[in-house]
């Protein structure tokens, strides 16, 4: 049985997976959005995520809250040490949220163009920053003995994190594209179908690059494989899911393609967790200064209370999520309440 600290580490990975799968596709819709020029097509794209993006983003809010509650030291160190990237992330998320809401409020061409741009830039910047953060966490950051992170913005934009940022962009773009295959029809769908192959190709190329770079540069990424042989399962799932994406796209089985894409995200989040464990932030200065699930955690009592909150709360969350996706299933039809 995992102890409370381990349980919360696993739960954070679960929340991260949930966030990546759900917000991943609506961010992805934003990333590929400029490829479409027809206003109706743009509206169909926006309305495909219209009823769900807000709920998807709540996963991020909950992830932040859970990190704050379970591992406050990590929350404090990361958020203050990465001040400027987090501010840019907030900027991107605000821009994105408001552009979805405001774009459709006027027919004026310039008005729509500006909000279109904001939606694309907000989605892309946010996704890129998530990837860069993951890359930095994997590569390690200058954590000192005082548990503070001392580095500047340029110190974070190293080659590996940038590669991870690009990889995250491609992954979300692919995920969003596959989601849109569910939501569109006719001409638009044909266009997206063609594009899904490009998206998968770009994703695959970056996937291979990230994998090679990780194996060469981040030795601790697979050090846990020796003590946790079950970690190989995540690798196998990852590869199978990856292979199944083009197969399902070819067979036009979009549910299978989307599930495989989602499974890839889960496998990647799991591999990220395995690579990090038991650290939450790795110190590039001295392993003694690593922030672990033990030296950064809340008290056992709080972890226990939080677990109860999660046990009561998460089934409700899954129920709401299921209901919403069920109600808004099927192709997008624009009506008076659409964006």
């Amino acid at each position: 049985m995992p102890d409370l600290n381990q349980t919360w580490f696993i739960l954070l990975i679960v929340l991260l997976s949930g966030y990546a799968i759900l917000d991943g596709f609506d961010l992805g819709v934003g990333i590929i959005y400029p490829l479409f020029s027809d206003d109706t097509h743009k509206r169909i794209l926006l309305n495909s995520i219209g009823p769900v993006w807000d709920g998807n983003e709540v996963w991020l809010v909950t992830l932040g809250g859970a990190l704050f509650a379970a591992f406050p030291q990590v929350y404090a160190t990361a958020f203050s040490g990465l001040y400027t990237p987090f501010m840019l992330l907030l900027f991107a998320l605000i821009l994105r949220a408001t552009s979805i809401e405001f774009r459709g409020k006027k027919l004026h061409k310039l008005w729509r163009t500006i909000w279109d741009l904001a939606f694309f830039l907000g989605s892309s910047l946010a996704t890129f920053l998530f990837g860069v953060s993951v890359g930095n966490l994997l590569q390690g950051m200058p954590i000192h003995s005082d548990m503070e992170l001392h580095c500047n913005l340029l110190g974070l934009l190293r080659p590996y994190p940038i590669l991870c940022g690009l990889f995250t962009l491609s992954a979300c773009a692919m995920h969003g594209t596959i989601y849109l295959l569910f939501k569109t029809k006719d001409k638009l769908k044909k266009q997206i179908d063609r594009f899904s192959w490009h998206a998968f190709g770009i994703f695959l190329a970056l996937y291979l690059m990230v994998t090679i770079f990780t194996l060469i540069n981040i030795p601790q990424a697979i050090s846990n494989f020796k003590i946790m042989p079950v970690a190989w399962l995540a690798v196998v799932v990852n590869i199978l899911a990856l292979v199944n994406i083009p197969r399902s796209l070819f067979l036009k089985n979009y549910l299978s393609a989307f599930s495989s894409s989602a499974l890839t995200f889960i496998a990647l989040a799991t591999l990220f967790g395995i690579a990090m464990y038991p650290n939450l932030i790795t110190s590039s200065i001295n392993p003694m200064f690593n922030m672990t699930i033990y030296n950064s955690a809340s008290s056992v009592k709080t972890l226990h209370i939080m677990l109860l909150i999660a046990i009561f709360g998460m089934p409700c969350v899954l129920a709401y999520t299921t209901i919403i996706y069920y109600v808004f299933r099927g192709k997008v039809e624009l009506d008076s309440s659409s964006y």
């Binding site: 709540v58 809010v61 909950t62 932040g64 809250g65 859970a66 704050f68 509650a69 379970a70 406050p72 030291q73 929350y75 404090a76 809340s298 008290s299 709080t302 209370i305 939080m306 909150i309 709360g313």
Partner: peptide, 12 residues
């Protein structure tokens, strides 16, 4: 964080 964080997480 040990006290305040759980209220924020509960809000989420």
């Amino acid at each position: 964080g040990d006290v305040f964080g759980s209220a924020l997480a509960a809000e989420g």
